Simulated assay, not measured.
Amino acid sequence: MHAVLQACQLERARRILGSRLTVHPPEDADEVAITVTYQDVEGVRQLLQFAESITVTGPATARARLRELATRTLQHYS
C-alpha cells in the first residue's frame, strides 16, 4: 500500500511497521512517501492507528476499505 505520512510520525511508523515499511526519499520533508507491504487489503487496519497523520494513496481497494472502516467506527461512536 502506498501512503503519505507526516514526517513527525516516521520513527513511530518504523517501530510499529518494521520490515513491512519502505520509506521513499526525500525523508526530510514535512511529509514522506511510504510503501507498506501486506498480504491482503485487511492489513490496512494497522494503519488506522496513524489517524489523520497518514493518507493512503493506493491501491483504490485499500482506500475504499479504510473509508468503510472509518464510517463504521464513526457510526459506532455516534
Rank of each mutant, 00 (worst) to 15 (best):
Leu69His: 06
Gly43Ala: 04
Leu47Phe: 04
Ala64Gly: 07
Gln46Ser: 06
Glu52His: 09
Leu48Tyr: 00
Ala51Lys: 08
Thr61Ser: 15
Asp40His: 12
Gly43Thr: 06
Ser53Lys: 10
Ala62Arg: 04
Thr71Phe: 09
Thr61Pro: 05
Thr37Asp: 13
Leu47Lys: 02
Arg65Gly: 03
Ser78Glu: 14
Glu52Pro: 03
His76Gly: 14
Thr61Asn: 09
His76Met: 09
Glu42Lys: 12
Thr71Trp: 07
Tyr77Ser: 11
Leu47Ser: 02
Tyr38Val: 08
Gly43Cys: 03
Thr55Tyr: 02
Glu68Phe: 08
Phe50Asn: 00
Tyr38Ser: 05
Val36Phe: 02
His76Trp: 06
Arg72Leu: 13
Ala70Val: 09
Arg63Gln: 12
Leu69Ala: 05
Arg63Glu: 11
Glu42Cys: 05
Thr71Gly: 07
Ala62Ser: 12
Ala51His: 08
Gln46Ala: 05
Phe50Tyr: 04
Gln46Asn: 05
Leu69Pro: 04
Val36Lys: 00
Thr37Gly: 08
Gln49Ile: 03
Thr55Gln: 08
Gly43Trp: 01
Gln75Ile: 05
Thr61Trp: 03
Arg45Met: 13
Val41Phe: 11
Glu52Cys: 05
Val36Glu: 04
Tyr77Asp: 12
Tyr77Arg: 14
Ala62Phe: 03
Val41Ile: 15
Leu66Tyr: 05
Ala70His: 11
Gly58Asn: 05
Thr37Lys: 14
Ala62Val: 06
Val56Cys: 08
Leu47Ile: 03
Leu47His: 02
Ala70Tyr: 08
Gln49Asp: 02
Ile54Tyr: 01
Tyr77Asn: 12
Asp40Glu: 11
Pro59Leu: 10
Thr55Pro: 01
Val44Lys: 00
Glu42Val: 13
Thr37Glu: 15
Glu42Thr: 15
Arg63Phe: 03
Gln46Lys: 03
Leu74Ile: 06
Pro59His: 10
Val44Asp: 00
Leu47Asp: 00
Val36His: 02
Thr71Cys: 06
Thr61Phe: 05
Arg63Ala: 03
Arg63Ser: 04
Ser78Ile: 10
Leu47Val: 02
Leu74His: 05
Arg67Ala: 15
Thr37Arg: 15
Gly58Pro: 03
Ile54Pro: 00
Leu48Glu: 00
Ala64Lys: 15
Glu68Asp: 13
His76Asp: 08
Val41Gly: 04
Ile54Val: 06
Leu66Ser: 06
Arg72Val: 13
Ala51Gly: 09
Ala70Thr: 10
Gly58Leu: 04
Arg67Val: 07
Val56Pro: 02
Ala60Arg: 13
Gln39Ser: 15
Thr55Asp: 07
Thr61His: 06
Asp40Tyr: 09
Arg65Asp: 06
Arg45Pro: 04
Arg67Met: 10
Arg65Trp: 10
Val44Arg: 00
Gln46Trp: 02
Pro59Phe: 08
Ile54Leu: 03
Ala70Glu: 07
Ala64Asp: 15
Thr73Met: 15
Leu48Met: 02
Gln39Pro: 12
Ser78Leu: 15
Leu74Phe: 06
Val41Arg: 08
Gln75Met: 11
Thr37Val: 09
Val56Asp: 01
Ser78Gln: 14
Arg45Gly: 10
Ala62Gln: 04
Ser53Ala: 14
Leu74Thr: 06
Val44Tyr: 01
Ala60Leu: 10
Gln46Cys: 02
Gln49Phe: 01
Ser78Trp: 12
Arg45Leu: 14
Gln39Lys: 13
Arg45Asp: 14
Gln49Thr: 03
Arg45Ile: 13
Val56Phe: 03
Val36Cys: 04
Ala60Val: 10
Gly43Pro: 02
Val44Trp: 01
Leu74Ser: 09
Tyr77Lys: 12
